[in-house]
């Protein structure tokens, strides 16, 4: 089956076999920031990407489901030459230890901060509840989300001026 979609802002077409998940397809395209940490049973969050701005687990998302929609992976958010403020906040807050959970965490954060720039602790914990991290104890991840929110707020203010 041939599927047309937009990935990281670019129109893409791909072939998919029956049973292919979005995860399979993204990895095949060389998007290596999408990670796998459970047996693709949707329990770790390492494979999180944004589908039309909403965080989804790519390992349990059937590939055909993205037809005509917009996928954002960590590669599309920013790179080291021009990182997104959330990526910078994670790096600066000490929220990245092994980093294996980070792409998923950061994309879940993006989907939260697209909705609100003044998230409560409960909202943060809720938004990241599907993303497991074994390294950090989440403390610095919560810090990073708040720092990112502040940075984005500042950015917004600067833009309005």
């Amino acid at each position: 089956m041939r599927i047309s979609t937009r990935i990281n802002g670019v129109a893409r077409q791909f072939d998919c076999q029956p049973g292919d998940t979005l995860f399979d397809v993204l990895r095949r395209m060389g998007l290596r920031g999408v990670k796998e940490g459970c047996d693709r049973e949707g329990t770790c969050g390492a494979c999180t990407v944004l589908l039309d701005g909403k965080a989804v687990l790519s390992c349990i998302t059937p590939a055909p489901k993205v037809a005509g929609r917009e996928v954002l992976t960590i590669e599309g958010l920013g790179d080291v030459a021009s990182p997104h403020p959330i990526q910078v906040a994670f790096a600066d807050a000490g929220a990245v230890q092994c980093g294996y959970c980070s792409p998923g965490m950061i994309l879940s954060t993006k989907s939260l901060l697209d909705r609100t720039l003044v998230p409560t602790q409960e909202q943060i914990a809720e938004a990241l509840s599907g993303n497991l991290c074994r390294c950090t104890g989440y403390v610095k991840i919560f810090d990073a989300v708040r720092d990112a929110a502040a940075a984005l707020q500042q950015e917004k203010k600067d833009n309005e001026r």
Binding site: G33, D79, V80, Q87, V88, F90, V96, C98, G99, I106
Partner: peptide, 14 residues
């Protein structure tokens, strides 16, 4: 800042 953290946050470290 941890030397590899931005590359990890950008999904670029392998």
């Amino acid at each position: 800042r941890k030397v590899d953290s931005l590359g990890l946050a950008c999904g670029q470290e392998l």
